[in-house]
């Protein structure tokens, strides 16, 4: 199975951390649900063109924080995740995306007011659709 994971080469966030967060986001948004299988470490390493050591680290952290489970010989699966945790994960994901947009806006030397006005315009546009 292919996971929609996109690594950013321009981010200063370590790669294992990017993988962890994106898998968490897939679980929080319901794209991955309890019991869904995850690709093997080797397969994901090949697909993302990074070392299996990095994937192992991400999987270990995810397992430690209760998002996934590995059973010997069967593979890795999505674990049962607390709904409250999912909600806080989802808001975290939105926050991260907004922060990224802010940093792009800063690069283009937009003021806070201009950024807020832009967000309001976009929200209105969305609502009208």
């Amino acid at each position: 199975m292919n996971l929609p994971i996109r690594l950013s080469k321009s981010s200063r966030e370590p790669i294992y951390h990017q993988i962890e967060n994106q898998i968490k986001a897939l679980i929080a948004s319901g794209q991955l649900t309890t019991g869904d299988p995850l690709p093997s470490i080797r397969l994901l390493a090949k697909e993302l063109e990074i070392s299996s050591i990095t994937i192992r680290r991400a999987y270990q952290n995810l397992e430690y924080s209760g998002f996934i489970q590995t059973s010997q010989g069967k593979g890795t699966f999505v674990a049962e995740v607390d709904p409250d945790m999912k909600t806080s994960m989802a808001s975290q994901a939105v926050e991260d995306a907004i922060l990224k947009a802010i940093s792009t806006a800063r690069q283009h030397e937009l003021s806070n007011k201009e950024i807020i006005r832009m967000v309001e315009t976009l929200l209105q546009k969305e609502d009208n659709q």
């Binding site: 063109e49 070392s51 299996s52």
Partner: peptide, 27 residues
């Protein structure tokens, strides 16, 4: 190298590097 390797070892004019983890090397 991109799809298979976990570690890289460079051989350069007879000198051999230490074992370098691919992603640490890249970053």
């Amino acid at each position: 190298i991109k799809k298979l390797a976990d570690y890289l070892v460079f051989i350069n004019k007879g000198r051999v590097s230490q074992l370098l983890e691919k992603d640490s090397l890249a970053s």
